[in-house]
């Protein structure tokens, strides 16, 4: 039963993400019901749309597709982009036959109309990109990655760990992306000790606290009890797992420095403080 519900959910999610599917339906209706002259291509499109949308076949397709991929990939069977472009050609060349002979103004008007439809139905031109904040953060990660000594086993905020590992394969991590990304976890069967999972949660809480510190300027925020209480056990857990380098955001490190065991030596790189035992 849940499979059927999921199949319906996948359809509704797809309609939310990709409103261009409306053009697909419009051209199917036009060709099959009004012109009554559908090509082999449109017959394939109609069949594939029905297969994906009908809950039972949708569920079978979801089972057919390996679980490692997002459910939305079942829509790969429907050539949505091709149909939308086909609809555009039909509109420009067949439905508006004067377009070839008309003046430049009319052609420009039609092009604007097509762009308008694209803006309204598509992703409103929100092309995904790396923001300035993310670019700054990556620059800091890069400086940290460069300053790490050989045979480092690293523990730090997850974004930093992921970036360092992908850009410097000599650095090892105490836990990988599979700790926080279920899709990445599907690639390997490795599981982590429960203490490491607790240490991960502690580091994420610290990350949240860092964010609070960054946006709060007037008030001195108290250190949350969970961070103060969990510090020692988290440090012990990652040390037991072989970690020899801990990276913390400097702004947070300054607040919790007195809680850090004395045997750790600290130095700053970009916005981060690197802690190494007995350095």
């Amino acid at each position: 039963m849940s499979g059927l519900t999921d199949a319906i959910f996948v359809v509704s999610e797809y309609f939310t993400e990709n409103k261009l599917i409306v053009i697909c339906f419009a051209i199917l209706l036009y060709e099959f019901l009004i012109r009554r002259k559908a090509s082999g291509f449109l017959k394939v499109v109609l069949a594939s749309v029905l297969l994906v949308m009908f809950p039972l076949t949708g569920m079978i397709l979801s089972i057919y597709q390996p679980a490692v991929y997002e459910q939305g990939f079942v829509w790969a069977l429907v050539p949505v982009m091709s149909v939308a472009a086909y609809a555009g050609v039909c509109f420009l060349w067949d439905m508006v036959p004067e377009v070839e002979m008309s003046g430049k103004g009319k052609v420009a008007g039609l092009c604007l109309a097509v762009c308008g439809v694209l803006f309204l139905l598509g992703n409103q031109g929100r092309v995904q990109h790396v923001t300035l904040d993310e670019a700054d953060a990556r620059s800091a990660y890069g400086q940290v990655a460069e300053s790490l000594p050989e045979e480092t086993i690293l523990w730090g905020p997850r974004e930093l760990m992921g970036w360092v590992r992908s850009h410097n394969s000599e650095v090892q991590l105490v836990y990988g992306m599979d700790m926080w990304d279920a899709q990445a976890a599907a690639y390997d069967g490795d599981a982590y000790a429960s203490e490491l999972a607790v240490a991960y949660e502690w580091m994420q809480e610290l990350h949240e606290f860092t964010y609070q510190l960054e946006i709060t300027t007037d008030v001195v925020l108290p250190i949350p009890d969970s961070i103060a209480d969990g510090l020692q056990s988290s440090f012990d857990a990652v040390e037991k797992a072989g970690t020899n380098m801990i990276v913390l955001p400097t702004i947070t490190y300054q607040r919790i420095a007195e809680l850090i065991p004395a045997e750790y030596e600290a130095w700053e790189v970009a916005e981060y403080t690197l802690l190494q035992r007995g350095h």
């Binding site: 997002e70 990939f73 694209l118 803006f119 598509g122 992703n123 409103q124 031109g125 929100r126």
Partner: peptide
């Protein structure tokens, strides 16, 4: 053109 406008989800 559509390539620029179908960027809303990973699939």
């Amino acid at each position: 053109l559509l390539v620029w406008f179908m960027d809303g989800a990973v699939y």
